[in-house]
């Protein structure tokens, strides 16, 4: 069986995103680190609708959990929900310009952050505070650029389900 070309780019971009997320930033900047892994994942779900799905949510979630040093599975839950919502509303995300998609992508990431914030409060009794949300604006600014660049990948053109 021939493995489709985009799978190769998908794996490569996920590894790159993992490396970017694991890149140590100075203390003050660390909370502003964009959600590279989640954004790369969203990109593949909306461009390869029906092909990239929950399997990727698991791989991306595992990578995120290992980097963060959380209990394994925490990121998989929110990533699965993100993948589901992306697959459900891919048309909206796919055919509007990359600038407009910044908003829905921001919404998805806000969902993810809210979930992590609640978990942190309930599971470890720590309120991480407003700074925990610092990664949201940076992600929303980075997203259009990332989307624009990743669409240059030959296999990254919007496909039909």
């Amino acid at each position: 069986m021939r493995i489709e070309q985009w799978r190769f780019y998908q794996a490569l971009s996920l590894i790159a995103a993992t490396a970017l997320s694991a890149w140590p930033l100075p203390e003050g900047l660390a909370p502003w680190q964009p959600h590279w892994i989640a954004m790369v994942m969203i990109f593949w779900v909306i461009t390869q609708t029906g092909k990239a799905g929950f399997g990727m949510a698991w791989v991306a979630g595992l990578a995120s959990d290992l980097i963060a040093g959380n209990w394994i599975g925490i990121h998989i839950v929110s990533y699965s929900i993100i993948v589901y919502l992306c697959a459900r509303f891919y048309r909206t995300l796919q055919f509007s310009g990359s600038l407009e998609t910044s908003l829905p992508v921001g919404l998805l990431l806000a969902l993810h952050l809210g979930y992590l914030h609640l978990l942190s409060i309930f599971l470890s009794n720590v309120d991480p505070g407003l700074i925990f949300w610092a990664s949201l604006p940076t992600s929303m600014v980075v997203w259009p650029i990332l989307y624009f660049l990743m669409k240059k990948i030959p296999a990254g053109e919007p496909g039909l389900p």
Binding site: F54, W58, G73, V77, Y84
Partner: peptide, 27 residues
Amino acid sequence: MHWRKLTGSLILAIALISVDYRYAVVD
């Protein structure tokens, strides 16, 4: 029928969290 996959994925993930939380498998 994505919602079925979603439910499956969520159940598996939550199972994974509880296993890890309980037995520290990852550690």
